[in-house]
Simulated scan of single mutants.
Amino acid sequence: MPTLRQIAAVSSVAFALAATSAAAHAEKITIMVGGATKIIYLPAKLTEQLGYFKDEGLDVEIQSQPAGVDAENELLAGAVQGVVGFYDHTIDLQSKGKEVQTLVIFGQVPGEVEMVSNAAAGTVKSMADVKGKTLGVTGLGSSTSFLTQYLAQRAGIASTQYTLLPVGADATFIAAIKQNRIDAGMTTEPTVSRLLQTGDAKVLVDMRTLDGTRAALGGTYPASSFYVQRAWAQSHKDEATKLAHAFSRTLNFIATHNAEEIAAKMPKDYYGSNKDLYVKALGASLPMFTKDGRMPADGPETVLKVLSAFNPSVKGKHIDLAKTYSNDYLPAATATAAK
Rank of each mutant, 00 (worst) to 15 (best):
186 M>R: 12
193 S>D: 08
207 M>P: 14
227 Y>N: 05
270 Y>W: 10
197 Q>L: 11
202 K>S: 15
243 L>D: 09
266 M>P: 11
183 D>I: 07
187 T>S: 14
185 G>A: 10
240 A>R: 10
193 S>G: 14
243 L>Q: 14
169 A>G: 08
226 F>Q: 11
186 M>Y: 08
277 L>M: 13
272 G>H: 14
273 S>L: 06
214 R>Y: 00
225 S>C: 13
256 T>R: 02
270 Y>N: 08
234 Q>K: 11
256 T>F: 01
182 I>K: 12
188 T>H: 11
185 G>P: 13
199 G>P: 15
260 E>W: 03
196 L>P: 06
267 P>L: 01
168 G>H: 05
218 G>M: 01
240 A>M: 11
201 A>W: 10
188 T>M: 15
227 Y>Q: 10
225 S>R: 07
248 S>K: 02
213 T>N: 06
234 Q>D: 15
182 I>Q: 09
203 V>C: 13
213 T>M: 05
247 F>D: 09
227 Y>A: 04
273 S>Y: 08
186 M>C: 11
234 Q>N: 15
204 L>I: 05
257 H>A: 04
167 V>T: 05
225 S>T: 05
263 A>R: 02
241 T>A: 14
275 K>S: 12
244 A>V: 09
270 Y>M: 03
207 M>F: 06
243 L>Y: 10
212 G>L: 04
256 T>I: 01
221 Y>D: 05
277 L>Y: 02
258 N>A: 04
238 D>K: 08
225 S>Y: 14
231 A>E: 07
188 T>K: 08
185 G>T: 08
220 T>D: 02
269 D>H: 07
184 A>V: 09
214 R>P: 06
170 D>T: 12
193 S>N: 14
238 D>S: 14
230 R>I: 04
199 G>A: 12
227 Y>G: 06
165 L>Y: 12
192 V>Y: 00
218 G>N: 01
242 K>G: 04
274 N>E: 10
265 K>I: 01
230 R>M: 01
227 Y>R: 10
240 A>H: 01
259 A>Q: 13
200 D>C: 07
248 S>W: 04
260 E>V: 12
201 A>P: 13
206 D>A: 06
165 L>K: 10
253 F>W: 01
190 P>T: 00
251 L>G: 10
173 F>V: 01
186 M>I: 09
222 P>A: 01
260 E>Y: 02
270 Y>I: 03
210 L>I: 15
177 I>C: 13
206 D>W: 08
209 T>K: 00
199 G>F: 10
261 E>P: 09
187 T>M: 09
257 H>L: 14
194 R>V: 00
265 K>N: 03
195 L>H: 09
265 K>T: 04
277 L>Q: 00
192 V>C: 03
202 K>T: 07
215 A>P: 03
268 K>L: 03
237 K>F: 07
